[in-house]
Amino acid sequence: MATDTQTRQAEPASDRPGRIDAVPVRHPGRWVAIAVIAVLAAMLVHLLVTNKAFEWSFVFEAMNQSQVINGFLKGTLLVTALSMIVGVGGGVLLAVMRLSDNPILAGVAWLFTWFFRSIPRYILLFTMGTLGILFQDGVAFGVPFDWKIIEWLGFSGDWRLFTLDANQIFTGLVAGVIGLGLSEAAYMAEIARAGILSVDKGQAEAAEALGMSSGKVMRRVVLPQAMRVIVPPTGNETIAMLKDTSLLVAVPVIGELFYQLQSIGSTYYKTFPIAVAAALYYLAVTSVLMVGQYFLERHFGRGFGNKAPRAARPAGAGGA
C-alpha cells in the first residue's frame, strides 16, 4: 500500500500544477494597532522630553546624593536580601512542618501563617518598632525560666549566656528585617508547600527505598524538584519585598531610599521629580532581579521541559 502511493506520487511529477500567485493574508487590525501605539508613544516621549516639571537634572542630582545612595544600599537592597533570606528559609521550614506527620508542628506552622498573613506589613513594622517595651530588662539568652528554677532550688545568680538590649533589637534595620522576614515567611510557606506537593509521591518513595533518611529525601530529592515551582513566585515575592522596604518608615527607619528622597523633595519643594527618581531606582533594580530570576529558573528547570540541559549537550554533540 505504502509503495503503491509512493510510485503514484513520483510518476506524475511532470504535470504538477505551476506555482500559484499567493497573496499574504492581510492583517488590517495590526496596522491600526501599530498606528495607535506609535501616536501614544510619540506623545509619551514628547511629554518626557519637553515637560518642564520633570526637571531631569534635579532628578539625577537627587539620585546621586550620598544619603540617598546609602539608603538605597542599606535600607532597600540589604533589607530586601536579609528579609528574603529569613523569609525563604523560614517559609521552607514552615512548609516542611506543615506537611509533617507531627500534628503539633503542623498546627504551629498553620498558626504562624495565620498570624503573620493577617497583619498588614505597615502595622507589623510599626509594632516591631515598639516591641522593646515588652522586654525592659533586655532579651536574655540562656536557660528559660532560670530565675524561677534558681529561686526554687535556693541558689543565687543567673544562668544567662548574654543579654541584648531590647531597644537595640527592636529598632532600625534589625526590627525591619525581623518584621518583613517573618511576614514573608508566612507567604513563602504557602509557596514552598505548593512546590513540595507538586513533586510526585513516587520520587520520595524511590529515595526512601534507596535507604535515604527523611531529611535527605527532602533535601536531595524533593526540594530540588520543588524549586522549579517555588522559584517563579519567589521572584515575584522578592520584587514585592524590594518595594515593601519603603514601608520601613513605620519602624521608623530613615536610612532608606524613599524616605531620603522625600526629605530632599520637601527641602526643595520638588515632590514630583523625587517620585520620578524613586521610580527609576525601583525600575532599575527590578530589571536586574528579573534577569537573576531567569537564570535561577533555568538552573532549577534542568531535566524538565524540552530544552536540552546544558550538561548533556557536549556529550550529545561529541558522541552519538
Partner: peptide, 15 residues
C-alpha cells in the same frame, strides 16, 4: 533491598 517501580521514578533533575 533494591526496588524498581512501574513508573521508574527516576530523579528527573539528575543525569
Amino acid at each position: 533491598i533494591g526496588m524498581v517501580f512501574q513508573q521508574f521514578n527516576l530523579f528527573p533533575h539528575l543525569s
